[in-house]
Amino acid sequence: MNELALVNHKLAGDRVIPMNCPKNFDKFTPGMPDTIIIHYTAGRDALSSAEYLRKDDIKASAHLIIGRNGEIYQLVDFNTVAWHAGESQYAGRTFFNRYSIGIELDNAGRLEKVGTEFQAWFGKKYQQNDALLAVHRNESHPTWWHTYTPEQIEACRQVCDLLIKSPAYSISSILGHEEIAPGRKTDPGPAFPLDKFRSMLLFQNRTDEPIQLAMEGKVVNADLLNIRQDPSIEAKKVAQPLKTGTEVTVLEEKNGWYRVETKITGWVSKGYIETKQ
């Protein structure tokens, strides 16, 4: 993937498509922005979402939209306030537009299973390999979600890494829209590896290596392994126990637990997962 650069609060690179959005002109106050907010577009494609958000009569916008092939539309300069967070609250702050850069990823969001296909709210249908059954962090039951592409995740990682390293900003936090507006928003949803993404960028030994989304070729080595909503023995079970030899894909690790994907996603104790022989 070609390199990106920051030039005068704009992205530069072969994958970057500048788009004018003159409705946003207020500058951040000194010391801001210090947060990146990750969203999904819930739209048909990246270009149509970018065209929609740049309209003068639409009271919403974002700094970037990242397409499914890793292309990046920039609507608003990074030193300028965009209207992506709306009514929001987190850690004692409200109205996060004043503190944050908004990155939208082209993704349909929640899907409904219709026969053998999966339908978005706007009618477009997707196939099984584009859908993931998972429990949202603010919900208790699994539903279907549109998956993200590795190219999107990597483009988002590169952008966030540039912003974090740049002395022009004070980025110390990455949040999902679902975390600053729970009950009102569900993006980026459980198909985006938000916890691992921000942990690798902000807290662990940071490298320029792509974020690996999953570990495949793992199997259950217990007779019956409970799969839970959260990484805790007290958490609610989300499905029937997994049987010995069940193949799983490990999506995330946390405090001695794996978040795994089979037909659904949930958390299991990592001690009962081993590499397939």
Rank of each mutant, 00 (worst) to 15 (best):
L111N: 05
W257D: 05
W144F: 14
V250Y: 01
E139L: 13
F28Q: 09
D130E: 15
L47D: 10
N97I: 03
Q240R: 10
F197D: 10
T116Y: 03
R44A: 13
H136L: 05
F192Q: 08
V135P: 09
A168Q: 14
S269K: 13
K124W: 01
L133M: 13
E104V: 00
H146S: 11
G102I: 00
K165I: 00
I103N: 06
G176H: 09
P33L: 02
T275H: 10
L105Q: 11
P193S: 10
N24I: 00
V260Q: 06
N205A: 12
Q204H: 12
V220G: 09
K243R: 14
S100N: 06
L111C: 04
R137M: 14
K165C: 12
V114W: 00
F122E: 08
I58L: 04
W257C: 01
T207C: 02
C160V: 09
A222I: 05
V135Q: 05
G67I: 08
A82P: 00
N226H: 08
E51C: 08
L6Y: 03
A46I: 04
I227C: 15
R93Y: 15
R206V: 13
C160G: 04
Q158I: 11
N8W: 05
G123I: 09
K27S: 12
L224T: 11
I227G: 07
H63F: 02
E216V: 13
I273T: 08
A181D: 12
T249K: 11
S88M: 04
R44I: 15
M215K: 12
T275D: 15
V135K: 06
Q158P: 04
P241G: 07
G266R: 01
I180D: 08
K124S: 08
E179C: 01
A82F: 00
R54Y: 01
T29P: 00
Y90I: 07
R206T: 14
H9W: 04
N107R: 04
E274K: 15
A42N: 14
L163C: 06
E3S: 14
